[in-house]
Computed example of a mutant assay.
Amino acid sequence: MLRIVSLQLIATVVAGAIAALLGGWAAMVSAVLGGLCCVVPNGLFALRLFANAQRLGQANPMSFFIGEFIKIAMTLALLFAIAKLYPDLNWLALIAGFIVALKSYIILLFRH
């Protein structure tokens, strides 16, 4: 799980660099923020799963579903907060950064 989260972070940085070349500073910040809306909840979810797996008898499907619900709610909250708090938001870059981070795990599928 750590590999996936680190790959998402790397993909977010690459998306931010490409957005900076294409759209400037505001596009880069928007792309990075969009990617972080995916990376931060996934990282916290992975940490929670790892902590639950370390405790004996605590890894159950219900904790997975609760963690997944929290992850989705956190993602939506971060997207909403960025939309309200960042005045120079470039929506195309934000969505592109989010999608790149979200789908970056596909790279790991083609690695082996």
Score class of each variant (00 low, 15 high):
residue 1 M to H: 02
residue 2 L to A: 04
residue 3 R to N: 11
residue 3 R to M: 13
residue 4 I to Q: 00
residue 4 I to E: 02
residue 4 I to C: 03
residue 4 I to S: 04
residue 4 I to A: 07
residue 5 V to K: 00
residue 5 V to I: 06
residue 7 L to E: 01
residue 7 L to G: 02
residue 8 Q to F: 15
residue 8 Q to G: 14
residue 9 L to F: 15
residue 9 L to S: 07
residue 13 V to A: 09
residue 15 A to H: 01
residue 15 A to D: 01
residue 16 G to S: 03
residue 17 A to W: 10
residue 17 A to H: 04
residue 17 A to P: 02
residue 17 A to L: 15
residue 18 I to S: 05
residue 19 A to Q: 11
residue 20 A to C: 10
residue 20 A to T: 10
residue 22 L to M: 14
residue 23 G to I: 01
residue 23 G to Y: 03
residue 26 A to L: 08
residue 26 A to H: 14
residue 27 A to H: 09
residue 27 A to M: 10
residue 29 V to P: 04
residue 31 A to E: 06
residue 33 L to C: 01
residue 33 L to G: 01
residue 33 L to I: 01
residue 34 G to M: 15
residue 34 G to D: 13
residue 35 G to Q: 13
residue 35 G to H: 13
residue 35 G to W: 15
residue 37 C to Q: 09
residue 38 C to L: 13
residue 38 C to Q: 10
residue 38 C to V: 15
residue 39 V to W: 12
residue 41 P to Q: 11
residue 41 P to A: 14
residue 43 G to N: 09
residue 44 L to D: 09
residue 44 L to S: 09
residue 44 L to H: 09
residue 45 F to P: 02
residue 45 F to A: 11
residue 46 A to L: 08
residue 46 A to H: 02
residue 46 A to D: 05
residue 47 L to Y: 06
residue 47 L to R: 01
residue 47 L to W: 06
residue 47 L to A: 12
residue 47 L to I: 06
residue 48 R to E: 09
residue 48 R to V: 06
residue 49 L to N: 14
residue 52 N to D: 11
residue 52 N to F: 04
residue 53 A to K: 13
residue 54 Q to E: 13
residue 54 Q to A: 11
residue 54 Q to L: 08
residue 55 R to Y: 01
residue 55 R to G: 01
residue 56 L to W: 04
residue 57 G to P: 02
residue 57 G to K: 03
residue 58 Q to G: 00
residue 59 A to C: 00
residue 60 N to L: 03
residue 64 F to T: 11
residue 64 F to D: 05
residue 65 F to L: 14
residue 66 I to Y: 11
residue 66 I to F: 11
residue 66 I to E: 14
residue 67 G to M: 07
residue 68 E to K: 13
residue 70 I to A: 13
residue 70 I to M: 10
residue 71 K to S: 09
residue 72 I to K: 14
residue 73 A to R: 12
residue 74 M to E: 11
residue 74 M to C: 14
residue 75 T to G: 14
residue 76 L to F: 15
residue 77 A to K: 06
residue 77 A to R: 07
residue 77 A to C: 09
residue 77 A to W: 12
residue 78 L to H: 04
residue 78 L to W: 10
residue 79 L to T: 03
residue 79 L to F: 14
residue 79 L to M: 14
residue 79 L to P: 02
residue 81 A to H: 08
residue 81 A to D: 07
residue 83 A to T: 12
residue 83 A to V: 12
residue 83 A to G: 13
residue 84 K to H: 12
residue 84 K to C: 10
residue 85 L to P: 01
residue 85 L to N: 06
residue 86 Y to E: 07
residue 87 P to Q: 08
residue 88 D to G: 00
residue 88 D to T: 00
residue 89 L to M: 05
residue 90 N to E: 06
residue 90 N to V: 07
residue 90 N to C: 02
residue 90 N to I: 03
residue 92 L to Q: 08
residue 93 A to R: 06
residue 94 L to K: 04
residue 95 I to Y: 07
residue 96 A to L: 14
residue 96 A to N: 03
residue 97 G to W: 10
residue 97 G to Q: 04
residue 98 F to W: 12
residue 99 I to L: 15
residue 100 V to S: 02
residue 101 A to D: 03
residue 101 A to M: 10
residue 101 A to S: 10
residue 101 A to I: 12
residue 102 L to E: 08
residue 104 S to F: 02
residue 105 Y to I: 05
residue 106 I to F: 07
residue 107 I to D: 00
residue 107 I to N: 00
residue 108 L to P: 01
residue 108 L to Q: 03
residue 109 L to S: 02
residue 110 F to P: 00
residue 110 F to S: 05
residue 111 R to V: 09
residue 112 H to S: 09
residue 112 H to I: 05
residue 112 H to N: 10
